[in-house]
Simulated scan of single mutants.
Amino acid sequence: MTVFHRNETRDPLPPHLKGGVVAIGNFDGVHRGHQSVLNRALEIAAKRGIPALVLTFEPHPRTVFRPDTPVFRLTPAPLKARILETMGFNAVIEYPFDREFSQRSAEDFVHSILSDWLGASEVVTGFDFHFGHGREGGPAFLMDAGNRYGFGVTLIDAFRDENTDVISSSHIRALLKEGDVAEAAGMLGYRYTVEAEVIGGEKLGRTLGFPTANMQLPPETELKAGIYAVHFRRADGTLRDAVASYGRRPTVTENGAPLLETYVFDFSGDLYGQVCAVSFFGYLRPELKFDGLEPLVAQIRRDEEEARALLAGVRPLDDLDRTLCFA
């Protein structure tokens, strides 16, 4: 799959990708609501035998308008692109979003990007998609523009889960803030996953007999501090059961920066410098401060037993979850 980054959006689109079906949206999380839009785009493209593309925006618009409070991203750009590739898209266009872009008119967006640059034959998006300066472009504007520029428009209604609740990225973020990774997985359609480089640490875990792979997550991450049962994927694709601690390590440090420390079961090797993934299956307990290292070690052993038991019974939610978190 081709991913077009910021600078490349100024270059001509390769001819084999022009004239395709374009799904438009931010798609942070690529959750089941987003998937209803994306799967419809894939269906149309397959039926017509033309490329399926995703047009998304980087960075997240809320981060541009409120830089002091950047949004907690469920799927940073590399992970989002990997999920979209897994779904079957031919290309992802990460269009640069800045204040200058936000001032462009809806007409200019349609003319210069959808028509001239992408040559879209069909645009698929959510029923509430708005674009252009002051959000002047909405569904009616887009459908009228499609008639004028010669592309079709498919609008997808809000997706509701089994409880008739509308699935949204903000709701999923709220669940993760509470540590409810199981409920979040039901809305995402796959287990919440993070990717980061394994970095060096104080090696205390190794001294205690529980060596950990340490990962620094983005500072805006608002996952609840605590202990989780997880799957750990190495850079080579190898997958293992593990238990992870996310937080500030109150037993061994004062006001430490949040860190994700993962104890990978039945593994010994060097992971430093590898970009690895951690998928969250269950919340085991909150982060605690212990009175010394001995009770900490005893609790880690109990955490390992509980995580092994939980992970022994997990099954994929669907094909996407199977590919991302099991295969």
Rank of each mutant, 00 (worst) to 15 (best):
V64N: 00
R66P: 08
P67S: 00
D68I: 09
T69I: 14
T69W: 13
P70M: 06
V71K: 07
V71L: 13
R73H: 01
R73E: 00
R73I: 01
P76E: 14
A77K: 08
P78C: 03
L84M: 11
E85R: 09
M87S: 08
G88H: 04
G88S: 04
N90C: 07
P96Y: 02
D98I: 02
R99M: 06
R99N: 08
E100R: 13
F101E: 02
S102P: 11
Q103V: 02
R104M: 08
R104D: 00
S105G: 12
S105T: 14
A106V: 01
E107A: 15
E107I: 03
E107G: 10
D108H: 11
F109C: 06
S112E: 15
S112K: 10
S115V: 14
S115M: 09
D116R: 15
D116F: 05
W117Q: 09
W117C: 05
L118A: 06
G119T: 05
S121E: 15
S121P: 09
V123P: 10
V124H: 13
V124N: 12
V124A: 14
T125L: 09
F127N: 13
D128W: 08
H130A: 14
F131A: 07
G132R: 01
G134H: 07
R135A: 12
P139E: 15
A140T: 12
F141C: 06
L142N: 03
M143W: 03
D144F: 01
R148M: 14
Y149L: 08
T154H: 07
L155Y: 09
A158R: 15
E162I: 14
D165F: 13
V166G: 02
V166K: 12
V166Y: 05
V166M: 06
I167S: 03
S170W: 02
S170C: 02
H171G: 12
H171M: 12
H171E: 08
I172Q: 01
I172W: 00
L175Q: 04
K177I: 10
K177R: 15
